[in-house]
Design a binder for these strands. Sequence first.
DNA 1: AATGAATGAGAATTCATTCAT
DNA 2: AATGAATGAATTCTCATTCAT
Lengths: 202, 202, 202, 202
Amino acid sequence: MPKIVDKVSKRKEIARFAMELFAQNGFDRTAIREITARAGMGKGTFYDYFVNKEDILSEVVQLMFIEWTELIISKLKGVKDPLMQLETLLKEGAKLGDEFKHLMILYVDIWRRSVRKKGSKKFNRRFQSFLLESKKVVADIIEKAKAQGMIRKAVDSDVIATTLIALVDGLCLHYMVLKPEIDIDGICQTFFDTLLQGMKEK
Amino acid sequence: MPKIVDKVSKRKEIARFAMELFAQNGFDRTAIREITARAGMGKGTFYDYFVNKEDILSEVVQLMFIEWTELIISKLKGVKDPLMQLETLLKEGAKLGDEFKHLMILYVDIWRRSVRKKGSKKFNRRFQSFLLESKKVVADIIEKAKAQGMIRKAVDSDVIATTLIALVDGLCLHYMVLKPEIDIDGICQTFFDTLLQGMKEK
Amino acid sequence: MPKIVDKVSKRKEIARFAMELFAQNGFDRTAIREITARAGMGKGTFYDYFVNKEDILSEVVQLMFIEWTELIISKLKGVKDPLMQLETLLKEGAKLGDEFKHLMILYVDIWRRSVRKKGSKKFNRRFQSFLLESKKVVADIIEKAKAQGMIRKAVDSDVIATTLIALVDGLCLHYMVLKPEIDIDGICQTFFDTLLQGMKEK
Amino acid sequence: MPKIVDKVSKRKEIARFAMELFAQNGFDRTAIREITARAGMGKGTFYDYFVNKEDILSEVVQLMFIEWTELIISKLKGVKDPLMQLETLLKEGAKLGDEFKHLMILYVDIWRRSVRKKGSKKFNRRFQSFLLESKKVVADIIEKAKAQGMIRKAVDSDVIATTLIALVDGLCLHYMVLKPEIDIDGICQTFFDTLLQGMKEK
DNA sequence: AATGAATGAGAATTCATTCAT
DNA sequence: AATGAATGAATTCTCATTCAT
């Protein structure tokens, strides 16, 4: 009997190495050879765990999703007030590309693939789930704020969640490119105050 | 020095063909041969106008900027009320990837390159200018709204402009990936109303 | 030594699965993994029964020989007259590639290997036996025709058998490639009549 | 202006090198690298002349056709009597694999590809033309024999030509595999005499 | 005896870039 | 100035075979 390998966990293990490389050089510019070399295995073994290069992306997306979520959760840890949570999310989210540039590079790569509709079914499905779940997390926070009477009941939590999430992504991108010329904290603070004003009970 | 002028305009001419191809297939997946073939010239001639493949990107960014700006201007044409202009900008901007998917593909490609800091100096400078100028256009509209007493004087037009621009980019991306599951018009409308509420005189 | 017997019969069993695959995709394009998968065994086990990939070919040749022979016998079943048997052999043989294309693909693959002298000793020996035995079957029919006074005693049954067998193979090939443009039945009929004329008592 | 190359003649030149290699090792077992190495050029240059590996086969088939035809013509040169020509054709044809084993190996490779219908349109068309033209040459000789009253007018020259060509191919194959055990000259002589008997005026 | 994990040589193909003309 | 012929490094992927368990 040969050594029995947990294919699922080895997939994840390889994907973790791949993620590092994709983050550094992008998906297209990372060769299978590099991935397997870093994982300390033979080139051919890759294909025992992934049907082709594309296949590893969906695994990496899942990994990034987990990493991303853990990051956000750690940022929100200790913040109790729902409104403060939203503000933190915006501020910290916008700066994510600063602290975790490698993740951001991978993230944009994924956006690019997804926009071009080049990815596999599995890849696209996973990425969409990621986006939708992120939105749900934010919507839940807004609902809590509503429940605590901090903002109007009429506020559409889904709409605000969608826009906040999109805004975080947008700011993240802009901040990365314009970094020194932008006071990201001030911008987030001021904008959030203005939006909050609009969400409060008149 | 008429020869110099020729070089410059030929650069632009070639870049226009390149832009079409980059928009279709992305930068990496477009071969020099394809560009020169479409431009009706020999493959080697490319290197008389660009030092390498990377070099053509900065030219293309400028072109995209012009195209992009003209697009936005045409969308805003006829809209007189500054607030309506902002709303239109948001709504139409978010849907740009729908109507002009090819431009969007190119746009994300450029974001990717820029975030990775892989581009040339010239390329990055041009892209930054593009972002800053876009923001300025929006800020001017907000200033007009302030001048007409539609919103509070205290509103920071630069901050709101920055966030709106970033939001447009973010929504654009999300919309492209989640298209069928998102009521983009409704979202933009509701969000803008809320934000506006926060910007109005109490 | 029951184990020995097991090995032999398992060889044949595996070879039967291999034959199907070789017939479909050719020897070179069939992977060991496909064979073992279809045989419901582990990939490594293959090498407990065959020294290498080449080794399975000789087993397959033998199998094909049996299949082939059964096919011919079934075609001749019911035909009593030796001359009619020869005619049937020619007609049906030439059309074999039509009805049993998969066998034909395998057959040509084997010819190719044999002509190139790339095969193992065992493989070549088996293939030669196959050809010689086929000839013998035909020669026997001719002898019967001679015995019944249908053709001249002077006819060299070995020569005619050799040429008829070769002709069947040749026609089979040509028919497969030129199929729609060839009236194979008419050709066989006319040719056989002419040859028969030459074999009959003057 | 760069060096101007006659693409058509260079194609043929490369194909000639390829033919040698295909003849030795078969199409599948010949790497592009080997072809270009023998042709004294870089690996990439191959694709300036052929769209892919398959593409060179049709060129090689044409080459083989020419070589084959010249061979047959040289064999028939000096033979005036049409019947003798047919006999020569049969005898020499059957032995072709002996003298020109390399061509034969290539020939069987081509048969294999054609039977499997794996080849490109161009390849298949060329091979079919080759077969049909060969048949026509033989049919013409038979017509001449008829014209000179050597055989019955009623003989169907097309049918006999088709079978003779097929027989040559079949014998060639059998002879290559069974060589030492076969008196090919005797077989051809005897068979042809018998067939001739059937074709003569009663 | 049986197995499947691991391997790496080797295949076809692409393409930015150079350079002789 | 313009060109296209030539190149070779690099890429993805396949698969017969080995071997530890």
